[in-house]
Nucleic acid binder design. Structure first.
Lengths: 159, 159
DNA sequence: TATTGTTATACTCTATAACTATA
DNA sequence: TATAGTTATAGAGTATAACAATA
């Protein structure tokens, strides 16, 4: 009883979400490389971002973000502009070609999703979207909480 | 307008689910290897499964399932028993040690999740769980639909 | 000394293809 | 000939650590 049990079920469903994401990726038309798809979308939405900001948004190590950005740059989909206030960092933004690619990929993925969810009501789709956003928010909040605690304690990493 | 736009938003949220899963995994106490965590849970819930069934449930290639099962076996968490009706295949099941490990890992992950969702109502947790289950179901149905089409066309692999 | 970012290295997960052994 | 499963190999993705440049 209690929320613990509900969390057990939720955990299992979250695990299986990986299958869904993999299924969508598999179906994206080949030819357009899939690497950095999520990053393309993020840059399209957010505009200029520093590498460190990318790492934070995706909750990955900065080395990972750095490599993904370099990958986009090699393909001509992103470019760096210097940060006038701090010469250590650069701003990353999409090129016009990158923006086109981002839109195209998003449309493809959306098509796959819309096809699978053809019998869903708009309300249910919106509900799932909102709950997932809340989930992400709750985890971000917990991360802040945890790192605060470990800072207070001494150095021992949390939990 | 239309459900297409809703799907675009949902897509972005689904992508970010990866961050949440990664966050949970990162926090699982080290010492217990993380590889095959989901498989441990699946075997604990479903009992005996063939390798091919594992592959189907996780929507991965059979070679992937085979390697994960071998990994569990090497750690002494799973064992194979012959299938009396078909000597090509074996049944995979958890050993008592594997069952203990599954329970322990599930409890740890559940704890992390419950901590992050401390301010969620039971109803919201249940709602998210149900919607994710429906999402998975819808994608499975779509997969069947799609492969039916290709089967009609020529005679491809079933389900 | 701390921070931003890159590179080198290794590990995990996954897919493809070639292979075996049964059916 | 087809199917269940394994293994070899390759390709993404990620984390850790060592490093360079700037603050």
């Amino acid at each position: 009883m209690g929320p613990q049990d509900h969390c057990g079920e939720l955990l299992l469903q979250l695990s299986s979400t990986g299958s869904v994401i993999r299924a969508v990726k598999r179906e994206l038309r080949p030819g357009a490389p899939r690497g950095g798809f999520a990053l393309l979308g993020m840059l399209s939405r957010c505009g200029d971002l520093r590498v460190g900001e990318v790492a934070e948004l995706f909750e990955v190590d900065m080395s990972v973000a750095s490599r993904h950005v370099a990958d986009l740059e090699e393909h001509g989909w992103a470019e760096r502009t210097p940060n006038p206030h701090d010469r250590r960092s650069w701003y990353v933004r999409l090129t016009p070609a990158g923006e086109r690619m981002a839109q195209q990929r998003l449309a493809q993925a959306r098509e796959v999703l819309a096809d699978a969810l053809e019998d869903w009501s708009d309300a249910d789709i919106a509900a799932l979207t909102d709950l997932l956003a809340r989930l992400r928010t709750s985890f971000d909040a917990r991360r802040v909480r945890t790192s605060d605690l470990s800072r207070t304690a001494s150095g021992a990493k949390g939990l």
